[in-house]
Simulated assay, not measured.
Amino acid sequence: MTTWNLNGMKHHLFFCNGGSCTKKGAEEVVEAMRDEIKLQEADVRIHTTRTRCQGRCEDACVITVYPEGVWYKEVTPEIGRRIVREHLVGGSPVEEHISYTYEDELAARPDTKEGQSKTKRKEAQTK
Rank of each mutant, 00 (worst) to 15 (best):
A42R: 11
D35C: 01
V44S: 15
A42Y: 07
E41T: 12
D59Q: 15
R50E: 14
D35G: 08
E41A: 14
K38S: 08
C57Q: 06
H47Y: 10
V29E: 02
G55I: 03
V62D: 10
T51Q: 08
V44E: 14
D59L: 14
H47R: 14
R52N: 12
E28M: 02
D43R: 12
R34N: 15
H47E: 09
A32D: 01
V62M: 11
C61P: 03
C61N: 15
E58S: 15
T48Y: 05
E58A: 15
E58L: 11
C61Q: 12
D35I: 00
R50G: 04
R34G: 03
A32Q: 02
R34E: 15
E41D: 14
V30F: 02
R52W: 10
Q54P: 00
M33W: 05
E28T: 07
T51W: 05
D59V: 02
R50P: 02
E36C: 06
C53W: 08
I46Y: 08
D35F: 02
K38M: 01
D35E: 13
C57R: 06
Q40R: 13
I37R: 09
V44Y: 13
R52H: 09
I46R: 10
Q40T: 01
A32C: 03
V30Y: 01
A42T: 04
R45L: 06
T51I: 07
A32L: 04
E36N: 03
V44N: 14
Q40D: 02
C61L: 03
M33D: 03
T49C: 02
E28A: 15
V44G: 11
E31L: 04
A60Y: 07
C61E: 10
T51M: 10
R34F: 00
V29P: 00
C57Y: 05
V30A: 00
M33R: 07
V29I: 06
E41R: 15
R52E: 13
Q40L: 02
C53I: 06
A42G: 08
K38W: 00
V30E: 07
C61H: 09
R50S: 11
E58I: 10
V30K: 09
Q54Y: 03
G55W: 04
E41F: 06
R50T: 12
Q54C: 08
C53S: 14
I37G: 07
G55V: 04
R50M: 10
C61S: 11
Q54V: 11
T49M: 10
G55R: 09
C57S: 09
R45S: 13
R45T: 09
D35A: 12
H47A: 15
I37C: 06
R50I: 06
H47L: 06
K38I: 11
E36R: 13
V44P: 00
V29M: 01
T51S: 14
D59E: 15
A60F: 07
D35H: 09
G55C: 07
R52M: 11
T48M: 05
R56E: 14
G55N: 10
T51F: 03
